[in-house]
Amino acid sequence: MVTSITSTAVDILLVEDNPTDAELTLRALGKHNLANNVEWVKDGAAALDFLFRRGDYAARGNAVPHVVMLDLRLPKVDGLEVLQQIRANEHTRLIPVVVMTSSKEERDIVDSYRLGANSFVSKPVGFEEFAKTVVELGLYWMLVNQVAPATE
């Protein structure tokens, strides 16, 4: 079943350490009413805490996000490590993960796909293109893509 975007559960987990990139992303999503259920975390450790309901997120409900937008260069635990742990856990391994990064390096692209990223997007520098890319991604993974049934 397609979950409604108005669900109270978190739809998008945005893992981004750069506050301006995060603000631009949230603004682009907000323009299309996609920002209502976005959780923004600033490092890899917080992302893992959120996904595995630990620390600050221990009390959070059981639902998993529809999509994780993951930057690669993150404080504490880097993006590839986060991706690896998501894929290694029975509860989270089916969550779509979109790697969004400034990098165009071949090794980043290869490593991301090897660890099970669903998509690799290089962030455009121009704001118009950037906003367009973010919105397209949001719409695709939230509305068009069919998610796997919950494992619980």
Partner: peptide, 13 residues
């Protein structure tokens, strides 16, 4: 590749 682009995006954004 990574760090110079982010501020640039911020300026433009």
């Amino acid at each position: 590749s990574h760090d110079l682009r982010a501020p640039l995006r911020a300026i433009d954004g």
